[in-house]
Amino acid sequence: MPSNDPATPEPDFDHLLRANLERVFNERDPARRAAAMAELYVAEPVMYEPTGVVTGRAAIAEVAGRLLEQSGPDFVFHADGVAVGHHGLGTLRWHAGPGEAVAVTGTDAAQVVEGRISRLWVLLDPPAG
């Protein structure tokens, strides 16, 4: 659980959530993605997606890899602004698509425990239009 001690510094939400976007969800090499997962996530993380719940580092890494494979070689996630957070909860807005094109937008909300992502909610915005 996050500490209630006001002397305990907050994690660097911006660094952590940007690293997750770049090193996990934009990483096409499975070995590098797994190494990033080990660094950025607790041992048994949970990810909540609109279509289901994914448990464990390997399963989350597999979802990220499958998403990149299905979306094509130019598909990439981009952070929008700076991640914000406090009391163990951080959020980062993002957009994704081929190159700079925008196919989907959303927000990652992460529970951070001892500097690592414990739970990640992937919140997709409704399609424009």
Rank of each mutant, 00 (worst) to 15 (best):
102 V>Q: 00
2 P>V: 12
21 L>D: 14
8 T>P: 13
128 A>F: 00
71 S>N: 00
13 F>I: 03
4 N>V: 13
86 H>R: 13
21 L>M: 14
57 R>W: 08
28 R>L: 09
62 E>Y: 09
107 T>L: 03
12 D>Y: 15
107 T>V: 06
62 E>N: 12
62 E>W: 06
63 V>W: 12
61 A>N: 09
61 A>R: 06
66 R>W: 11
58 A>G: 13
73 P>R: 12
41 Y>A: 09
35 A>T: 10
62 E>V: 08
15 H>F: 08
93 R>S: 07
78 H>Q: 04
104 V>T: 12
76 V>K: 02
120 L>M: 14
7 A>Y: 14
5 D>W: 14
109 A>H: 00
73 P>F: 10
61 A>C: 07
14 D>K: 06
68 L>I: 09
47 M>K: 09
106 G>C: 01
97 G>S: 15
27 E>D: 05
39 E>A: 10
78 H>M: 01
43 A>P: 07
23 R>H: 08
51 T>I: 14
6 P>L: 14
32 R>S: 09
4 N>E: 15
70 Q>Y: 11
93 R>P: 04
42 V>G: 05
77 F>S: 02
71 S>V: 03
101 A>L: 01
124 L>E: 05
71 S>F: 04
24 V>G: 04
74 D>Q: 13
84 V>P: 13
129 G>I: 03
45 P>D: 02
72 G>C: 10
125 D>F: 02
21 L>C: 10
26 N>R: 04
9 P>I: 05
124 L>T: 06
70 Q>E: 15
122 V>I: 09
30 P>N: 05
57 R>S: 06
97 G>R: 11
31 A>T: 10
98 P>F: 09
35 A>L: 13
51 T>G: 14
104 V>E: 12
122 V>Y: 05
71 S>M: 04
20 N>I: 14
80 D>G: 01
31 A>I: 06
